[in-house]
């Protein structure tokens, strides 16, 4: 097998939260390499530090020590402008709570990142409509988030994340606020898009439905990488049983 490009590299990352009297060590030295085009799930119980790790990879938070490389660039070295550029062009974010801008229509929500990236208005609108078609929301472009269901809002968020053709999509509990079938739809959509476009999808989750589509699962426990499983090592029985229980 040829050596694939490492799109994300995390080396020795620790993160302490200073709560005044005590210092909480949330991450205790994480080393992780993520190959381009893979679908990765970061699994772990709540409080394990997976969201914190996730924020580090997304450049939303800075590690106490250690380095995070996106596309072989150390993000600690970037200034505010370059960081904004990275968030805008390289990374697409999907959140548990969708986080669409409530005052804007679906189409406008999708075009904001393109506006930031300097795409002309017409081109942005055209691409926005294409993306809406791709996520299965044809004809919903004038709807505000409040006029869409949870699943539809998350689809808009997926389209928004894809707007600037990022290399990485970071999805933080993308199915956390959705019911079972809607959640599965979103997972399937992410997987399809990952295959079609070769986008690396990294999702933090404790939803076992995610396991079925993941190429690699990173288990985080108590601020450390517990184990990394490839798809073929995954215990299918666990996936089946756990998803049935949900």
């Amino acid at each position: 097998m040829t050596e694939k490009k490492k799109i994300v590299r995390v080396t020795g990352v620790t993160k302490d939260f200073d709560l005044g009297k005590i210092v909480v060590k949330v991450l205790k030295g994480i080393d992780l390499e993520i190959e381009e085009g893979k679908y990765i799930s970061i699994m772990g119980p709540s409080g394990s530090g997976k969201s914190t790790l996730f924020n580090m990879i997304g450049g939303l938070d800075k590690p106490t020590s250690g380095k995070v490389f996106i596309d072989e660039v150390d993000i600690a070295q970037l200034d505010a402008y370059e960081l904004a550029w990275l968030r805008c062009r390289k990374i697409g974010y999907i959140f548990q709570t969708f986080n669409l801008i409530p005052v804007m229509t679906a189409l406008e929500n999708i075009t904001i990142p393109m506006t930031f990236a300097g795409v002309s208005n017409d081109a942005a609108l055209r691409r926005g409509m294409e993306l809406l078609d791709q996520v299965g929301l044809t004809g919903r472009h004038t709807h505000r988030p409040s006029e869409l269901s949870g699943g539809q809002q998350q689809r808009v968020a997926v389209a928004r994340a894809l707007a600037n053709s990022p290399a990485i999509i970071l999805a933080d509990e993308p199915t956390g606020n959705l019911d079972l079938t809607t959640g599965e739809d979103i997972i399937r959509l992410l997987k399809e898009l990952s295959l079609q476009r070769g986008v690396t999808v990294i999702s933090a989750t404790h939803d076992y439905k995610m396991l079925n589509v993941s190429d690699q699962v990173v288990w985080i426990r108590d601020g450390q990488v517990d184990k990394i499983q490839e798809r073929d090592e995954l215990d299918i029985r666990t996936g089946g049983l756990e998803s049935a229980r949900h």
Partner: peptide, 16 residues
């Protein structure tokens, strides 16, 4: 707050 945070995640600078 959330809207502002989201805009920043999408690449907005402080001055926007």
């Amino acid at each position: 707050f959330r809207e502002i945070g989201t805009l920043k995640c999408l690449g907005a600078l402080d001055r926007f």
